[in-house]
């Protein structure tokens, strides 16, 4: 009479088939889907472009900043870009609705532009440091660190040395 139990179980459980495309699509937890880019957190290190196995990421640099382009049609969702992105500017969403007609083939891109800002010290254009990078690099945020943040590497070096000499003198 074991079959009765199986029959009853099957009747109680309902269909095993997912409703999609006639119903809502299920989203798996931690699904690695379409890559999203947040230009506000990007530091322009270029690691994502380097590690992308499909060559889906391209960074165009010019005098005014950089433009990052991701073409989803050659992305293999490996997640290397998101893994190596220190400032979490690139992350993977759980969106998998990427099937599209041929006319949209080259429109399936994600673009983001990071603009240069002038250095407070010398006016040289530098890429802005995001809050995420500041959080990673420093434990607390002091006014001193905030001041160094807006300086180019050369000015930052000079300012740091000046600060150290000043501290040394006051100690002696």
């Amino acid at each position: 009479m074991g079959f009765l139990k199986v029959l009853l179980n099957n009747l109680m459980k309902g269909p095993a088939t997912e409703a999609f495309p006639f119903g809502p699509p299920p989203a798996a937890p931690h699904y690695r889907g379409r890559v999203a880019f947040d230009p506000a957190s990007c530091t322009g290190c270029g690691m994502c472009e380097l590690v992308c196995p499909g060559g889906a990421i391209r960074i165009d640099r010019d005098a005014a900043g950089l433009q990052l382009t991701i073409w989803h049609n050659t992305c293999v969702f490996c997640g290397l870009c998101a893994h190596y992105c220190l400032s979490k500017a690139i992350r993977q969403t759980d969106d998998w609705h990427l099937a599209h007609p041929q006319a949209e083939k080259f429109h399936l891109v994600e673009r983001g532009r990071v603009s240069m800002i002038p250095c407070v010290g010398c006016g040289k254009p530098i890429l802005p440091l995001s809050d995420e990078v500041m959080r990673l690099a420093f434990k607390g945020r002091t006014t001193e660190i905030e001041r160094l943040r807006r300086l180019c590497p050369d000015c930052r070096r000079i300012a740091s040395i000046r600060e150290m000499r000043h501290a040394h003198r006051s100690l002696v």
Binding site: P21, P26, C75, C78, W96, H97, A99, P101
Partner: peptide, 22 residues
């Protein structure tokens, strides 16, 4: 001439169903 593209490596079955529906 290709009519529908279903990107993914590999695309998940639901994405393939979506492409076939198109």
């Amino acid at each position: 001439p290709v009519d529908v593209n279903v990107p993914g490596c590999p695309p998940r079955p639901q994405a393939i169903i979506e492409g076939i529906a198109k």
